[in-house]
Amino acid sequence: MTARRVTVVLAALLVAVVAVLPALRSGAAGPDGPEAGFARDMSTHHAQAVRMAMTVRDRTRDDAVRTLAYDIATTQSQQIGMMTAWLDRWGAPKTDPRGPMRWMSHEGHAGGAQAMPGMATPAQLAALERASGRDAEVLFLRLMIVHHRAGVEMARAVLARTGDAQVQRLARTMVRGQEAEIALMTGMLRQRGG
């Protein structure tokens, strides 16, 4: 009799724990957390890197720059997809009409994407589209070094704010990958007299 009651109680507790677990786990990251802000803003940030990389591939025949640009465009496109999948899973909006970067600064940036660190201005993008050969390479490298530095800063900012293992992993690869590319691009820029 007592043994059966204990069994029933344990079973009930087990059911309760199993039911609570997924709720606790999905609480690691949600629609309004820094992870969602990071996923949204880093997607916008990455999208501009992809655009600049695609542009410079059209503007130069230099193999080293074209290979680097190919690497950046394909990698960052994939990462946008990964971050978009997080937002889908969290049921989070893909945009914040109150402005980007609120997760880092706790206040809205009415300036929009231009307020995001490291972003090239429309005039700089237009200059890249007009330039060709060595000029395009130098401009691309300069813009992308600044862009990557800010990307590293944003990835470090989310690492300081999240306990979500998946977000941590991708952010760490961004820090390492982009730091390595900054070193590479700094060397390439020097070779080109930039």
């Binding site: 916008t44 914040d96 109150r98 980007p100 009415a110 300036g111 929009g112």
Partner: peptide, 10 residues
């Protein structure tokens, strides 16, 4: 316009 500037994909 303020909304548009704050929102990529608009």
């Amino acid at each position: 316009a303020r909304r548009i500037r704050a929102v990529d994909y608009s």
